[in-house]
Simulated assay, not measured.
Amino acid sequence: MMTLQQIYNHLDKISPFELQEKWDNSGLIVGDMAREVSQIVVSLDIDFTMIEEAKEGTLFVVHHPLIFGKLTQLDFAKYPSNLLEKMILKKQSCIALHTNFDQTHLNKYVFEKILGFKPEGQNPFLCTTKGEWNYKALLSLIKEKLNLPTLKVVGKKEKITSIALCTGAGASLMNEVEADCFLTGDIKYHDAMKAMSEDLMMVDIGHYESEKFFSEILIDELKVLPILAIIAHSKNPFHTETY
């Protein structure tokens, strides 16, 4: 058994919470630092099924903070209070590793280990590389490696000589991108219009699809701890309908 504080300290060493963005809420979400943890469950997000299936005293280590923004009331019929109530009743706890983990682990892992690109430049949230890719070949690679049935693409360049990536929703970083093609998720309409006007090709690689590797990365970092750590696979809230 370990205390929540001991596990928190370990997580802080591998991905310092102080690196998180000012608007973020990484760190302790639910729990008492002095309490003992029975097991660790690692997941991109947390849902009802996970809470119900996990035993009392479980610590959930997630990527997306369950409490995000101003929480002014605990209405147990609404999200996230409905999940928080069930967790509290089972003395479960939650820690989030969000924008700090993007910087220390997630972006580089997806760029290098999943897509097979060699990082040649990196700022806190952007990985970049140079080379030569054919339009169709690049899209085929992305679809295969990220298991995407379809791709939304802004602009079209038959010859691509540089690529940048930010997992999750990174379109706000567009002004920092110095590449022919920018891979990120949750690309909005007006972001697409801006990209077109500035001759930046963008490929929407999905929020869930680009961040689903969080658990497999983190579980390796937890193997040194004297406590059981397992992965729970959260569900993508979106699905594709074909008629």
Rank of each mutant, 00 (worst) to 15 (best):
K152I: 15
L84E: 08
C181A: 03
I114N: 02
A137I: 11
K130W: 00
F111D: 11
M87W: 05
F101N: 01
Y135C: 01
V110A: 03
A164D: 06
N107C: 03
F117P: 00
F117H: 00
C127M: 10
L148M: 10
I163S: 00
M87E: 12
G170D: 08
P119S: 04
L165W: 05
V110K: 03
F182C: 07
S140W: 02
M174P: 02
G170Q: 07
L106S: 06
L84P: 11
H105E: 06
W133R: 02
V177G: 02
T129E: 01
A137H: 07
L165V: 09
E158Q: 09
F182V: 01
K91F: 10
A96Y: 05
S140D: 14
F182R: 04
V154M: 09
T184W: 01
N100W: 12
L183G: 06
S140Y: 11
A164L: 10
Y135L: 09
L97G: 10
I95G: 08
L89A: 09
V154F: 11
I142N: 04
N134V: 05
H98A: 13
L89I: 13
L138E: 01
I187F: 15
M174V: 09
K188A: 11
K130S: 12
Q122F: 06
T128N: 13
H105N: 08
T184P: 05
K157L: 12
F111M: 04
S93C: 12
G185M: 03
T129A: 03
C181D: 05
Q103L: 07
E178D: 15
L139R: 14
N100H: 14
N147R: 06
N147P: 02
C166H: 08
P119E: 10
N134W: 08
E144V: 03
A169K: 13
L151T: 10
T128W: 14
C127N: 08
F125Q: 02
Y135K: 07
I163V: 14
I88D: 01
T129Q: 01
Q92V: 08
N134K: 12
A179T: 05
G170N: 06
K157Q: 13
D102A: 00
N100Y: 14
F101E: 01
T167C: 15
H190T: 13
F182Y: 14
L89G: 06
K159C: 11
V177A: 12
G121N: 13
